[in-house]
């Protein structure tokens, strides 16, 4: 065991964990988007606008809870395994997306919205044709932040049996195999960087044509 090389860890053991980690991240990120974007949109609608600062404040506080604690809480509620892990990760990823959706929509120049209404668009058309496209860069920035958060937290989710790169890290710690910890942590970092850059480039591609002024 002591003699296994980093190269062997990378080629033989890591792929399985990378895939598991990626699965965790992608599932939770997608669920987070599906919940947070509509919630954010709802919070910018006339009838809910007054609650938006309160809801964001609650989410902000929730974000202040350490990831370890979040994981621990869900251990008590849902037990161990992949499902509680995904629930915990999803919750952890909600805030940046919801917050940015609200900010993105509220930051659109009022005259653009007024013009859209003025030319005869219905509220739904204003949302889909004007508000969402114009808020998209900021929403994507939120997803970017969220993805990096989830990649990191997913490693800790191994504590409730999530698997993934966290498994390599904790294996290294518990069995005094620093190479495993090192490889697991580095791969985690690389994955975070890749997610970050992917969304950054996606944002540039989507908005290269226009600037909001």
């Amino acid at each position: 065991m002591e003699t296994i090389s980093i190269f062997d860890i990378l080629t033989k053991e890591a792929p399985e964990h990378i895939l598991q980690h990626l699965k965790l991240v992608l599932i939770s990120l997608n669920i987070a988007i599906l919940i947070a974007v509509p919630t954010g949109v709802l919070l910018t609608r006339k009838s809910f606008k007054k609650y938006s600062s309160k809801v964001i404040a609650v989410l902000n506080t929730a974000q202040g809870v350490p990831s370890l604690a979040i994981v621990a809480i869900f251990l008590n509620i849902l037990g161990i395994g992949i499902v509680p892990s995904i629930v915990a990760l999803t919750l952890y990823g909600l805030l940046p997306i919801a917050q940015n959706t609200v900010a993105g929509i509220n930051n659109i120049n009022y005259e653009v919205i007024e013009a859209a209404k003025g030319v005869g668009m219905s509220d739904k058309q204003v949302l889909y044709k004007i508000e969402l496209p114009l808020a998209l860069p900021i929403i994507i920035a939120g997803i970017q932040t969220s993805s990096v958060l989830i990649v990191g937290t997913a490693a800790i989710a191994e504590l409730i049996g999530a698997g993934g790169l966290g498994r390599m890290i904790f294996l290294g710690i518990t069995h005094f195999l620093p190479k495993y910890t090192l490889v697991g942590a580095l791969l985690c970092a690389v994955m975070a960087i890749i997610f970050d850059q992917f969304f950054r480039i996606l944002n540039i591609k989507l908005t290269r044509n226009y600037k909001q002024t």
């Binding site: 120049n109 007024e114 013009a115 003025g118 030319v119 004007i130 496209p133 909001q212």
Partner: peptide, 16 residues
């Protein structure tokens, strides 16, 4: 509003 042309001061062109 579809039947009424509307021009506002800050124009409000759709930037995208």
């Amino acid at each position: 509003r579809l039947k009424i042309g509307y021009v506002i001061q800050k124009i409000g062109l759709f930037p995208h």
